[in-house]
Design a protein around this nucleic acid. Structure first.
Lengths: 198, 198
DNA sequence: CCTACCGATCGGTAGG
DNA sequence: CCTACCGATCGGTAGG
């Protein structure tokens, strides 16, 4: 009972901070802004979190773990390259639409972490991107994807998906699924090799 | 001769600021950082520019004007929708690859402008996006683009292009042109209606 | 969770 | 373009 955590308050602080970080950027969001949005004094924030950067770390690593875990699930399903890429993209969009603010912070604000967190984060980000590239390379070798620079293709797809937070306004979770499919099929058309199909 | 402007110095300050704003974000870039990168004292910056925000305004409006001017040229060529969209995309990528730092600031930091600049900027940004949507709508009516939500398609295309600064490493201007073509054709495949072609 | 406060740093100005 | 400096605000701590 001595160290009973006030988890709802901590979670509330992190959620409000996420929205603030997305809208104003990490550097331009002050702890006083955050505190007044929560409804307490600035100093009281520190009863629940250690530092401003800790909030950023929690957001970035939580998302990084979600992306890596969901990709691993897709990889373990033994799908052919086309289906593997399709599922990976839909899963990626699912994580983004489930929390647009967090995914915006993940994508735009990770640079503000100090080492070693920044370095650890980059390892995870690079790992994810490499595994995306290798799905595309499998598909090229397989003949199902058009030949081309697999790294450019992969970066184009991922940055297209990661830009969704800039403009997508979520409605229902059902609409989110339709949206994920439409985006995925549109982008996938550019990768699929149509020459051998006829 | 009384008000002879030291334009090279001013230009140098703005170029270095652009790189700084891209790498650290506007809020996290201090005038002291900027000054020491230029090699002068912080107070001396103000001999050449009025305020920190003025630099941001110059970057954002210069890019906005470039995007709008180049789109207008494409619109005035009397092309059919497919070619119009292709040229618009290639022109858009051309502006981005010509100055990756400025286009990153344009895309990520404009929110930090105060009114009325922010509002004026948004009008230009919305105008550009609307005109992109209407090219796509023309193509859908024409049957050359697949039916679908033209706003989603437009936002997907534009945010895909605007994300290029996150990952593209420019080499030669010739390589930039090849790159622009590859990206454009990849993204265009997802929009083109292939059903009526066979 | 609050009051009171710390040293550091911020954008910017005065005056030369 | 510099020295010297301003008030405001920053992230964070002490002590309760």
């Amino acid at each position: 009972m001595l160290t009973k955590e006030n988890t709802p308050r901590k979670k509330q602080i992190e959620e409000i901070a996420t929205v603030l970080f997305k809208e104003r950027g990490y550097g331009a969001s002050s702890m006083r802004d955050l505190a007044s949005a929560v409804g307490i004094e600035a100093a009281s924030i520190y009863s629940h979190i250690k530092s401003k950067e800790e909030i950023l770390q929690n957001i970035c690593f939580r998302l990084a773990n979600q992306f890596l875990t969901s990709l691993e699930e897709v990889e373990n399903q033994g799908l052919r390259p086309e289906e593997k890429l399709r599922h990976a993209m839909i899963a990626h969009i699912g994580i983004i639409t489930a929390d647009l603010s967090a995914s915006a912070v993940f994508w735009n604000e990770w640079k503000h972490m100090s080492d070693p967190y920044r370095g650890d984060f980059l390892l995870m980000k690079n790992d994810y991107e490499r595994r995306f590239v290798s799905i595309i390379e499998d598909g090229i070798q397989n003949g199902v994807f058009t030949a081309g620079d697999s790294k450019i293709t992969s970066q184009l797809l991922l940055s297209s998906l990661n830009g969704i937070h800039h403009w997508y306004k979520p409605t229902s979770s059902r609409a989110n699924e339709d949206f994920a499919s439409q985006i995925t099929e549109t982008l996938l058309s550019g990768v699929l090799n149509t020459e051998t199909k006829y």
